[in-house]
């Protein structure tokens, strides 16, 4: 039986690993894969790490992983504090909210459902914030195409997450 402190250390280490993975995936995607020509939709590989955090560590740590990832990737790509950073942050928080809501429903949804909900919330929030920023509803015109793409990318990252979850043994944090 491990102590409370032990499991806290494990949880902290795992959080740090997931942040690192999320930053690597986010940065690789930003540099290697061009954003799709519709509303800056990305595949969202970094969200896989957030899904892992949500599955293993709970909602608080998932938000931490997501937000720290957005800040670090923005710092690396030089967009920190700019509008693009605000869009990314709003998308990340919206995706986290949607994924937590879906995850709370228990076994009704799998990680595929989490991912789809997350990516749909991500693009919707981004377009909404972009509309405020631009000062007109023009960005919202892209909502149908963005949601369609988000559905596809959500399914891709969801399947990848499920594949990973089935291979990685769940770290037992409370007792072992």
């Amino acid at each position: 039986m491990r102590s409370h402190a032990d499991s806290q250390t494990t949880s902290l280490a795992l959080t740090a690993v997931l942040v690192a993975v999320a930053v690597c995936l986010g940065y690789a995607e930003a540099v290697l894969l061009p954003t799709m020509p519709v509303a800056g939709v990305r595949i969202g590989l970094a969200n896989i790490a957030v899904v892992m955090a949500l599955a293993f560590l709970g909602s608080g740590r998932a938000l931490l992983v997501s937000v720290v990832r957005v800040v670090l990737v923005a710092a690396i790509t030089g967009t920190l504090g700019g509008p693009a950073f605000v869009f990314a942050l709003s998308g990340a928080v919206a995706a986290w909210l949607a994924m937590c809501a879906v995850a709370r429903a228990g076994h009704l949804f799998s990680v595929i459902g989490w991912s789809v909900a997350g990516s749909a919330a991500h693009v919707s929030a981004q377009l909404l914030v972009a509309s405020f920023f631009v000062g007109s509803a023009v960005p919202l015109l892209m909502l149908p195409a963005s949601l369609g793409l988000a559905l596809a990318t959500g399914l891709v990252t969801g399947h990848l997450s499920r594949l990973l979850l089935s291979r990685i043994p769940s770290p037992s944090l409370s007792a072992a």
């Binding site: 429903a105 009704l108 949804f109 799998s110 595929i112 459902g113 789809v116 749909a120 559905l151 399914l155």
Partner: peptide
């Protein structure tokens, strides 16, 4: 899961 399928249809319908 069935929930996933419903969710996917919901997002597709929204689009």
């Amino acid at each position: 899961t069935r929930g996933d399928t419903v969710l996917v249809c919901l997002v597709a319908a929204m689009a």
